[in-house]
Simulated assay, not measured.
Amino acid sequence: MNALPVDTRPPPRAGRRRYLLCPPEHFAVEYAINPWMDPAQPVDRGAALRQWEGLAAVLRGLGHRVELLEPEPGLPDMVFTANGATVVAGRVLVARFRHPERAGESAAHLRWFTAAGFRGVRTATEVNEGEGDLLVAGPRILAASGFRTTAAAHREAQRMLGLPVVTLELTDPRYYHLDTALAVLDHDRIMYYPQAFSPASRRLLRRLYPDAILARAADAAAFGLNAVSDGRHVVLPDAARGLAEQLRAAGFEPVPVAVPELRKAGGGPKCCVLELRSEGGPS
C-alpha cells in the first residue's frame, strides 16, 4: 500500500466555536424519509443519549461553547440541530423542512434564536434544510439541491445571509444532505465524496478545491463526511478510519466519536451540531 501524501503547508489552526445541540430525549425512528431509516429496526434511546453526551463532551473538551435546544415530544429528529437553521455573522435563516414529519422543528428553532437575542432571524420561504444543505466555507456558502433544499432556496439564502452561494447537485439518495457528502475543514479546504455529486458539480468542486481530500466509498458510507471541524480538529465517526488517516496526513487532527444509534436515522456528528456564527468571527 502506497504511503499517503503529506501536506507541507503550515499546520491548520483551531478556532473556538459556539454550537447548538439538542439532547435526543425523544429520539426514535418512526418514519422513513431517507434510505438509512427503517422503523422496523430497534432503536436504543438510552444508548443514543449516551453517545450524544459523548459528542457534546468532546466538543466542550476541545474548548468550544455548547448551547442546548430543549427537545420537544413528537419531534424525534430534533437531535439533528444542523438541519434547523444557517447562521452567518449573527443573521439566522431558519429552515423550512421538505417533509411534514420535521416541520415542527422550524418553530422550535425560531423560538430559541429569538429568545437568545439573535437579530435578523427569519424563517425561509423556500424549502431549505439549514446546515444540512448550506455549508459556510470561508467566503462562500456551498449549497446542495437534488433531494431536500431547492435551488430557489439557494437564491434566498444568498439574499438573506449575504454570502455568494455555489450550487451543487446531489445524485445519490444515500447522501441526501450536503453534510453527508462534504465537510468544510477550514477557510479554504474541504473533503468530499465525488460519486455523491453530478458530473458538473464534480468539475466545479475540482476547480474550486483542487487540493480537497477525496473520501473513499467505505468512509462515505460510514458517514465519515458528516464531520465537525474547528479548523484543526475534525470530529468524525470512528468507523471512518481511512478518512482519519487522510486528515492526519493533511495536517488535521481527527477526533473519532461513536454515534451508531443516531446513524439509524441517517445522522452523524455534524447533523447534531449547528454552528452559531457571531458578527465578530466564526464563533
Rank of each mutant, 00 (worst) to 15 (best):
A3Q: 14
P5V: 03
D7Y: 10
P12M: 04
A14G: 13
G15M: 15
R16K: 14
R18G: 06
R18W: 06
L21S: 09
C22V: 08
P23S: 13
P23W: 07
P24N: 06
H26P: 04
F27S: 02
F27Q: 09
V29G: 02
V29N: 11
Y31H: 15
Y31M: 02
N34Y: 04
M37C: 10
D38C: 13
P39I: 10
P39L: 15
A40C: 09
A48S: 11
A48T: 14
R50H: 15
Q51P: 07
Q51E: 15
W52E: 14
E53L: 14
L55M: 08
A56I: 08
R60M: 12
G61M: 03
H64N: 09
H64G: 06
R65K: 10
E67C: 07
E67D: 14
L69Y: 08
P71A: 13
P71L: 14
P71T: 13
P71N: 13
P73R: 11
L75F: 13
D77F: 05
V79M: 14
F80N: 08
T81C: 13
A82C: 09
A82W: 00
T86D: 02
T86F: 01
G90Q: 03
V92F: 00
V92N: 00
V94G: 01
H99T: 05
E101S: 07
R102W: 01
A103V: 04
G104Y: 05
S106Q: 05
A107H: 09
H109C: 01
L110T: 06
W112M: 07
T114Y: 02
A115V: 10
A124D: 13
V127Q: 05
E131D: 12
L134M: 15
G138V: 09
G138Q: 03
A143C: 13
G146C: 03
G146M: 07
F147K: 03
T150F: 02
A151S: 12
A153S: 06
A153C: 04
M160V: 15
G162Y: 11
V165E: 03
V165K: 14
L168M: 11
L170D: 07
P173V: 03
R174P: 01
Y175A: 01
L178M: 15
L178V: 11
D179S: 15
T180W: 07
T180Y: 06
V184M: 00
H187F: 10
R189E: 00
Y192V: 00
Y192F: 08
P194N: 03
S198W: 02
P199A: 02
P199D: 04
A200R: 14
A200C: 11
S201Q: 09
L204W: 08
L204C: 13
R207A: 04
R216C: 09
A218T: 04
A220D: 03
L225E: 05
L225S: 05
N226R: 01
A227Y: 02
S229Q: 02
R232D: 12
V234P: 02
L236V: 12
L236K: 06
R241K: 15
R241W: 12
L243M: 06
L243P: 01
A244P: 04
E245W: 11
Q246A: 14
A250C: 11
E253S: 01
P254L: 00
P254V: 00
P260F: 01
R263W: 05
A265S: 15
G267N: 10
P269C: 07
C271G: 08
L274A: 02
R277Y: 02
G280V: 12
G281Y: 10
